[in-house]
Amino acid sequence: MTRQIPIRLFGAFRQGRTDSTLTVEVAPNASVAELRKAMHEVLETDNARSLLKASAFATDSEVLDDADAVPEREISILPPVCGG
C-alpha cells in the first residue's frame, strides 16, 4: 500500500512544465527524506534533480526537515529563494 503525494511546484521547478503539481508515491509512514528520494526518481531532467538537492519541502505553515514524517497537509517543494 502506498500514498499518492501531490507536490506543488514553484520557481524553477515550473520551467518547461504546463502543470504546477507533481505526484509521487511513497510508503504510508514515509519521511520527508523518502519523499525527496521518490521525487528524485520521477523528475525528468538533470537540472531538476540537481535543484531538488538544494530545495526544501514545506507545508503552508512551515519548512519541513528531512527527518519529519510526510504530513497529511498539502506539500510544496521550495527551490532556493530570492525575494526583493
Binding site: 520557481g11 524553477a12 520551467q15 538544494a54 530545495s55 526544501a56 514545506a58 512551515e62 519548512v63 519541513l64 526537515d65 521550495l78 527551490p79 532556493p80 529563494v81 530570492c82
Partner: peptide, 10 residues
Amino acid sequence: EWIKGHVLRN
C-alpha cells in the same frame, strides 16, 4: 532565467 538564491533550511 530563474535567479539562483538562498537555500531554505530550518
